[in-house]
């Protein structure tokens, strides 16, 4: 991705977002009392103003992107193995998704132990035993602090119940 591509993609993205906000999102998801006579005081005014400025910023980005010369130089350093990098990212997305499902069911401590181990192996740790030990100890220490010092009701789940 070159500097020019970044600028153009951001510009078109901002323009699309502005159009989506004005045409669909604000009318559908922002409600205003019918007795508000003055648009400036309406709850709709601020979102519409921001959508307008986003559109302007998008136009500016497209305009400046078109003026940039395409040098062919990539703006981000390439990963050694892009396919593996994308797969790891997808794996991380799955871990995050599963965390949201597991938190109310398994509780925070057990879920944290599992995602600690999963993330450590996802990033190919060279210390697997240390990772497993930390995966057990760190969630327990954090539980002890937040539940007993800070007084937070940490979700316990159905399998593991801690004092």
């Amino acid at each position: 991705m070159t500097q020019r591509q970044v600028q153009l993609r951001l510009g078109f993205g901002a323009l699309l977002a502005a159009v989506f906000l004005v045409v669909y999102a604000i009318p559908a998801w922002v409600s205003s009392p019918s007795n508000v006579g003055n648009i400036i005081l309406s709850p709709l005014f601020w979102p519409y103003a921001l959508a307008g400025f986003t559109g302007l910023a998008g136009l500016g980005l497209v305009f400046s992107g078109l003026r940039l010369e395409d040098t062919g130089a990539a703006v981000n350093a390439r990963s050694d193995d892009p396919t593996a990098a994308w797969l790891r990212l997808a794996g991380m997305a799955v871990i995050m998704g599963l965390t949201m499902i597991a938190l109310p069911r398994l509780g925070m401590v057990l879920t944290s132990m599992l995602i600690f181990a999963a993330t450590a192996f996802l990033v190919r740790t060279r210390h697997p035993v240390t990772a497993l030990v930390c995966a057990v100890i760190i969630p327990l220490v954090l539980y002890a602090f937040f539940a007993h010092v800070a007084g937070v009701a940490i979700p316990q789940g159905n399998i593991l119940r801690l004092p």
Binding site: T125, C134, L142
Partner: peptide, 29 residues
Amino acid sequence: IPKRILIPAVLVLCIYGVFAVNNNIFDVG
């Protein structure tokens, strides 16, 4: 300190920390 152990520890700390604000799993999402 091995970075590949530090990073999962940071992730777990983030989850506990964000949950602790409002006792709400939605905030973790």
